[in-house]
């Protein structure tokens, strides 16, 4: 039962900069936890602290109930996949995967069995004699995965492993990582700045901002009920529309202290009637972004100038400058107070 427990973890650099400001996360056994946030939010630092590559200034990290604050990365029983793969350039694929096992004194036959098994799972069997520079980006990525798998660690750590791949490959590898993680049943911590990756992979999604956890929980729940304006803007693509309640017509009560009103592009309705308590706002069309199956209408409110995006099915044939009447049903509205917290 390899659960990973972070208790009030802090990272303070000697120059006084605080990168992680008291983060507590409990990752259940076999779960895939995704840390997502903009660059510089401390997510990578946090991951590196779990790996043992950064010291922990305050707080406690435990793996399988054992506090590992003072344990070296080698002895934490973790495996890490790096953004640049960090394959040993002078070693063949086979040796890249076997190196960690050899250092641990695993018997030769056992190493061979595990490497070949991992290579088969990752379809690397025919590449074992190649060197990393002879491989494509996707193949290198697989080797990096293989190196982690053969170790049979308690925890997998992924540091933006897909960000150097092209979009199509990224989609494939995303599915594959999820499948592997399920099959192997290894608790994983995954860092990304890509909210799509975060949404699709996570069992437990942790949204971080400026060294703190903004919200943690089930990804869809976070999508449905973002705890703050930051989360609302970060999770979901295109992001949630945020407008000033005063600039819209609202046929229902405004919650006390409400400073911002949000609705998702897909919840906006262009024609028809809003339900009781819904929102109505006039906007000028700036342009249409046809994606194929759907189109995104970019518009701005004449009053206040707030920018909005509306999703419509199919193709929208409209000229920029057209006046729109955007409505959203009451149950799809998100209210935030002046501090940006959800009401």
């Amino acid at each position: 039962m390899a659960e990973v427990d972070l208790k009030a973890v802090r990272k303070r650099y000697p120059n006084g900069m605080e990168a992680v400001k008291g983060v507590s996360i409990a990752i259940p056994d076999k779960a895939l936890c995704v840390l997502v946030g903009p660059s510089g939010c401390g997510k990578s630092t946090l991951l590196r602290m779990v790996a043992g590559l950064e010291t922990i200034s305050e707080g406690e990290i435990s793996i399988e109930g054992r506090v590992v604050n003072q344990v070296s990365p080698t002895d934490r029983d973790i495996a890490m996949v790096f953004q640049n793969y960090a394959l040993y350039p002078h070693m063949k694929v086979y040796d890249n995967m076997a190196y960690g096992l050899r250092n641990r004194g695993t018997p030769k036959a056992e190493i061979d069995r595990r490497v070949r098994e991992a290579a088969a799972t990752l379809e690397l069997g025919h590449l074992l004699d190649r060197r990393p520079r002879e491989l494509s980006g996707g193949q290198r990525q697989r080797v990096a995965m293989g190196r982690a798998i053969v170790r049979q660690p308690k925890v997998f750590l992924f540091d933006e492993p897909l960000s150097n791949l092209d979009a199509k490959l990224r989609g494939q590898m995303r599915v594959e990582i999820k499948r592997l993680q399920r099959e192997l049943g290894v608790t994983s911590l995954y860092v990304t700045h890509d909210q799509l990756e975060a949404m699709t992979l996570a069992d437990l999604l942790v949204v971080m901002n400026a060294g703190e956890v903004e919200q943690a929980g089930d990804p869809l729940e976070i999508y449905e009920k973002p705890a703050s304006i930051f989360v609302a803007g970060f999770i979901g693509a295109p992001p949630m529309n945020l407008i000033d309640p005063a600039s819209a017509e609202l046929s229902g009560p405004i919650p006390a202290g409400a400073a911002k009103l949000g609705f998702r592009p897909e919840d906006a309705i262009l024609d028809g009637f809003a339900s009781e308590g819904g929102l109505k706002i006039r906007a000028i069309l700036d342009g249409v972004e046809p994606v194929g199956a759907e189109s995104y209408l970019h518009a701005h409110a004449p009053a206040g100038g707030a920018r909005m995006i509306v999703r419509t099915a199919g193709r929208a044939r409209m000229e920029p400058g057209t006046e729109l009447e955007i409505r959203a049903p009451a149950e799809k509205l998100h209210w935030f107070d002046a501090a940006g917290r959800r009401i």
């Binding site: 590559l53 990365p73 080698t74 960090a86």
Partner: peptide, 9 residues
Amino acid sequence: EAARIDGAG
């Protein structure tokens, strides 16, 4: 770092 995690002193 990869080498450290791989147990290389």
